[in-house]
Design a binder for these strands. Sequence first.
DNA 1: TGTAGTGTGTAGTATATACTACACAACATG
DNA 2: CATGTTGTGTAGTATATACTACACACTACA
Lengths: 117, 117
Amino acid sequence: MSTFGEYVRKRRMELQEGDPRFSLRKVAVAIDVEPSYLSKIERGEQPPPGEQTIRALAKELGEDPDVLLALAGKVSDDLQKIIRKRPRIFAELIRELKDMPEHAVLRLVREVRDGKW
Amino acid sequence: MSTFGEYVRKRRMELQEGDPRFSLRKVAVAIDVEPSYLSKIERGEQPPPGEQTIRALAKELGEDPDVLLALAGKVSDDLQKIIRKRPRIFAELIRELKDMPEHAVLRLVREVRDGKW
DNA sequence: TGTAGTGTGTAGTATATACTACACAACATG
DNA sequence: CATGTTGTGTAGTATATACTACACACTACA
């Protein structure tokens, strides 16, 4: 597992190869933070930014916000809100699924999504 | 929905009826915080305390920690950790379940719990 | 009537979070 | 060789979080 900073830098560098819009400075301006701040984050000198900044970064880099948030040690606020509305049931479900193999959870998600409920 | 403070005060008061160990001071000492701090929390003058203090309080009052944490606007760190390990799948599942009726989610939890997977 | 226990008011503190502002050296490009 | 663009270094700030320390007034009761 790479850190948040490493992951972002790698992804941005890849995009930068083919497009000058992905220089550190341009991206920083696009997501509305100081270039030096983004620099420090990418090098792990500063901890990951706040949720809104991570979301902007994810959008800019074409990444999944939930994945980036996870790398930053965070869980999306909208998910937290959903859990907090029914804390008991969601707590139980999530703890139950903790050690389930990937395919089992995937099957579950698919069944729920396909509306067999 | 009551606030965190109101909820705690009500519950503690009920217990205090039959047992002097549930005075504000005694509970505060038991969970290792200053009585004045707990007083302010119960009256909503201060925001809810941190997760560890909420857990101690839940234990002391015989309440569900996840419910108390939810009232405090928090989600248990162990749940967040589980989600962060597989952010995509859990994000999708939780958002999918957001508007599901209680009985559907309950059925799902039961099926998972009973190991039909 | 003193003393033990009750809740509360005032006035702080330490640490973390989430950044900004600006200067600077290296490099490239016209 | 000046101009623009690159990433980075230094030195801060504002706000939130999670509390402590201690004094005070009131009540119960022995």
